[in-house]
Design a binder for these strands. Structure first.
Lengths: 102, 102
DNA sequence: CGGCATCCTTCTGGATACTG
DNA sequence: CAGTATCCAGAAGGATGCCG
């Protein structure tokens, strides 16, 4: 099932949120993403970024400054998830209204 | 974050697959879904169906036959996920090609 | 048929401390 | 800054058996 193939890659508590952040910012640093996503720990961010990189959804670029600077960005491939995220986000907004009662 | 609101409801190993099945079949019985989704156990199917019902994404209808017949179907609300599923599915198909190398 | 109960193992993920 | 290492609790989820 194709949907399951997609979810294999996207499963994990934070992956969708991470991709979402990268959709809006294009290039983003580790600590910035850490602040963007409320509640995530550095351990989890590190782990999920690594998995996304393995699956070719994002790239990791290191700049040899002092201290080092690392940028993450979506690959061309990962960018194709933008429309999915957009729809999901719209649905999520509506869902929150429904659950919260306003 | 709206995306996270959506994922709260959709998290779980099989929920997206279940919704996907109901997108294609409209009305579907417990044991049919069990067969549709490869690898799922009855315990998991039961649990995730219950959660989806609580969140108003699906409805559960019991027919008092002998033995009982139970149908699940998407609510009007759950149906709004169809476009998300469609995009996700398309992406998943492409992803499989990419990973499998063809 | 459509589940629920139980057992048990694995995975998830938070807190904290440490490093180049 | 951008992680890694360790510890540990709790959740997820598979296997099996039982029930109306």
């Amino acid at each position: 099932m194709a949907v399951h193939d997609a979810m294999d890659v996207l499963s994990g508590k934070w992956k969708i949120s991470i991709i979402s952040v990268l959709c809006y910012h294009n290039k983003r640093r580790f600590s910035d993403i850490l602040n963007d996503i409320k509640g995530i720990s550095n351990k989890m961010l590190s782990k999920e970024l690594k998995e996304l990189e393995i699956n070719k959804l994002i790239t990791r670029t290191v700049f040899d400054t002092q201290p080092v600077t690392v940028y993450y960005e979506l690959t061309e491939y990962g960018l194709k998830l933008q429309s999915v995220i957009k729809h999901l986000s719209a649905w999520g907004t509506e869902h929150r209204k429904k659950i919260m009662g306003r």
